[in-house]
Design a binder for these strands. Structure first.
Lengths: 344, 344
DNA sequence: GTCAGTTGGTTAAACGATTAAATTTCTATT
DNA sequence: AATAGAAATTTAATCGTTTAACCAACTGAC
């Protein structure tokens, strides 16, 4: 691999001049510039970014620490991050905590896993990344502030209790409210909920939105209309069965995610009822399954890629020393309207 | 940040000695070792990997170039890669070509996209990675050999026409054969196929396996039993409809992926038929949907994580100068048996 | 007491860039 | 023609490591 020294030799100038040509922030005569460029072409010279990093004390690399790359929203978030960073000439050093296996559907404070997390952060810090993006698997508030490694840190999909750390998530509450409104606007009076686990922060935010939509239409929420699931297909099926056995069964069901909504479908069809004629169903997450059900499931699409893009943007601003205008950004979701809900 | 120089100063030795302590490949007296270690503790010194990389001409970073991080198998593959590399102290620099948007379900030779690909490779090469893993989205043969950037390169999920490049994929043919055997063993005589697009390499390999299983049981494959879909739910539905309208409808259907199998389900149920009593269905890919259908879909799980692990392993071997024993590895899939197929 | 061998440690030259400061070369003004 | 000022270029220090080569001190053997 050619070095600047060789380029300098070939074009009869000093390495400094070669550097000046390349950086373009010093005057160089047209004549020398051309000679240098020729030599560069000729030798297929590429600047050694390692040497540059050492000298400049800046790697142009951002560490992305993901709780689990296999978590559903994670690839899209990383995609968004990658795209924004590329635009500014940064690269992504990826580190995977592989938490999914360890704490699937558990919502303890992350602080219990500080060991794993800070080891992950340290690894990135050792690589001298310019900044770190922490990508959580579930939207939640992170209370145990991570050991400050002295590198700018922002959160995707989680909100930090440390106000100095920026974060970008999506608006659970509002989205749940909006999709529930779809049902109230269709004149449904008996709307039931299949929630996620009661101790999940996501469940609680979506529950708030659901309640608000009902309130807006002065609809009651009898306790027997709230069923607790575990995000999985089977819990959706079982809880729907229970709902349909009530003396006043609901005419619409909001399942807090799509697999549970699929469970709804199964329970409803097993009883010979039709969707949406007899009962409406809406879901959340817009997983692949939503378009593979009959009829297509109306649901909420999360702005995952946008979250990634925005959080990268936020970090870049910090790196440029700009003050962050909004430390905690919450992006809106998009309602995906299909055929699973209809006027009563 | 503390440097070796400061450590040396604090412990009254030269930087060389500090380096020797850290690397452990030179003798150092217990006394000095302790003094140095103390100073390191005290200052919380961390070795500057950038400087080390420059000096050693080795970054301990592997570039992972993915065709699209949002492609279904990709996160699991990356997970496997990450895990293997971590075990050997390497880190992952991720680069995303974002091809999904550009060529979804098109199977032209990658050579048409050499521009995009070689730009991606160049970016990683510029970062001075020690090796590159190319992660394709669909199992296929890559003919246009990528510009050799002088960095060891291996393929995941694709096989290269260049024998010098290692590769790891999964065994489409054999897996399709095995899952079809499940049907022949259950005494089915009329087995139909819902294939992917005819020009897809994946389709063709799975077709070979399907044919072989039928041959083994001396079953015929009438042309009207082969239906071409496009991997999507709707094509599964339509093609199954066509199958069920035949004078001799099949008693079992192999859909080449799970969304199309979900389409099968819809068409079958619409006619009031039962799965598996009236007709058996099997799929491929083990997507989330497979466990959200009723009855659960018997399908094939791809060894994605294992592919990642193996391909990383292969690259590491190359980096250590070892000869690669098997340049093209093909890993077996796992049959996931649920309730969608039964004895006739 | 001399000498060879070992052990523990230092010196100094890399690695390949950037950049402030110094120096040379060119332009323009008188 | 002399000279001040601007423009172009070079010199040399620096970033934080690694490591070959060198050196001093010590250990035994004779």
């Amino acid at each position: 691999m050619a070095t600047m020294k060789e380029i300098a030799g070939l074009s009869g100038v000093s390495v400094a001049t070669v550097s000046h040509v390349l950086s373009g922030k010093k005057n160089v005569s047209d004549d020398t510039r051309q000679r240098v460029m020729q030599a560069i072409e000729l030798t297929n010279y590429k600047l050694n970014t390692i040497a540059k990093s050492l000298r400049m004390n800046k790697t142009n690399i951002i560490g992305v620490l993901v709780e689990d790359i296999c978590g559903l929203p994670v690839p899209e978030i990383v995609d968004g991050i990658n795209q924004r960073l590329e635009e500014s000439g940064y690269q992504v050093l990826l580190s995977n905590l592989r938490l999914l296996q360890q704490l699937y559907n558990q919502y303890e404070q992350l602080s219990q896993y500080t060991g794993v997390v800070s080891r992950g952060l340290q690894l990135l810090a050792d690589a001298r990344v310019d900044g770190i993006i922490y990508v959580a698997m579930h939207d939640r508030r992170i209370t145990g502030v991570h050991q400050p490694v002295g590198i700018p840190l922002v959160y995707a999909y989680a909100e930090s209790s440390d106000p100095a750390c920026g974060s970008v998530t999506y608006d659970n509450e509002n989205s749940a409210c909006e999709i529930t409104r779809l049902l109230t606007w269709q004149a449904h009076k008996h709307i039931a909920l299949i929630a996620g686990p009661a101790n999940s922060p996501v469940t609680n935010r979506r529950l708030l939105g659901f309640r608000q939509a009902l309130d807006e239409s002065s609809l009651p929420l009898p306790t027997e209309y709230i069923r607790w699931g575990d995000w999985e297909y089977h819990s959706g099926l079982e809880q729907t069965d229970a709902l349909l056995s009530l003396t006043i069964p609901p005419t619409a069901i909001f399942a807090m995610n799509d697999p549970m909504a699929a469970g709804c479908y199964a329970a409803i069809k097993r009883r010979g009822l039709r969707i949406p004629e007899d009962i409406s169903v809406v879901g959340f997450d817009n997983r692949e399954i939503a378009s593979c059900l009959f009829p297509g499931l109306t649901t909420v699409a999360l702005p995952n890629k946008e979250i990634g893009y925005a959080v990268a943007q936020q970090l870049l601003q910090r790196l440029e020393g700009q003050a962050i205008e909004t430390p905690n950004i919450s992006l809106p979701c998009r309602i995906i309207q299909r055929e699973s809900s209809g006027r009563l």
